[in-house]
């Protein structure tokens, strides 16, 4: 997993509320058994004028000229500004995979759907929830100036805007630690293997019917 420390990146808009995971990555692309390569199909239904198919070469598909991420001014963006309840819908991790593969490292929105929020951290993406007013202000500033770049400083837990404003944000200590060090969750949990074994022994004594039935 990529570590996340201080990231400076061009901001781009996903200016609608309740962007669900079907919109982030339509289901026809879920059939892949890989974890990479979903970037070209991020927001597929909005980005292209035709219906995307898995395995297709996206570079020859007709782009939707009205979709913000297709505009040259947002090319190479890595910070996504979004609206309420971003990432709602299914628990599919293809959504953060697609965002990450596309090059997004940080998503800023007034609120996120739970599962999606969780999944971001597990894939080296930093989701930041800020008050709606603040997000609004960022949207306006971004629309007003081409090349609007935000500096996201995870150690300091602040976002720095081009005009020098510092916007603090919250992040759980554990998630921050993992993101900073690019740590894999499993390795961390296995440090508690002895505690898990001890729990398991007691759990089996209390509820033996939960064990050995499926085998």
């Amino acid at each position: 997993m990529n570590s996340f420390t201080v990231h400076s990146g061009l901001a781009a808009p996903m200016d609608r509320a309740n962007v669900d995971t079907d919109l982030i990555i339509p289901k026809q692309f879920l059939k892949s058994i890989k974890r990479s390569g979903f970037g070209p199909n991020l927001f597929d239904e909005l980005r292209y004028l035709d219906e995307g198919q898995p395995g297709q070469d996206c570079s020859t598909r007709p782009l939707n000229p009205d979709f913000a991420l297709n505009l040259p001014r947002y090319a190479g963006a890595s910070v996504l500004l979004a609206r309420e309840n971003f990432g709602c819908g299914s628990s599919r991790e293809h959504a953060p995979w697609a965002l990450e593969d596309f090059g997004i490292r940080c998503i800023i929105a007034p609120s996120f759907a739970d599962i999606f929020f969780n999944n971001c951290f597990k894939n080296g993406l930093l989701p930041i929830a800020l008050p709606a007013d603040t997000v609004n202000r960022l949207f306006e500033a971004m629309y007003a100036s081409e090349g609007y770049t935000l500096e996201v400083d995870l150690p300091a837990q602040e976002i720095r805007t081009p005009d020098g404003e510092r916007i603090p944000f919250k992040v759980e200590a554990f998630r921050k630690h993992c993101l900073l060090n690019g740590l894999d969750d499993i390795g961390l949990t296995l440090e508690s293997a002895a505690a898990i074994r001890t729990f398991e022994v007691g759990h089996r004594e209390r509820s033996p019917w939960l064990f050995d039935t499926i085998a």
């Binding site: 974890r35 599962i115 894939n123 554990f174 949990t189 296995l190």
Partner: peptide, 18 residues
């Protein structure tokens, strides 16, 4: 409840969920 794919891997490997 539902989990994401990296949690599927986590549960397989550790029998636990964070």
């Amino acid at each position: 409840h539902g989990i994401g794919t990296s949690e599927v891997e986590h549960v397989l490997a550790t029998q636990c969920l964070i």
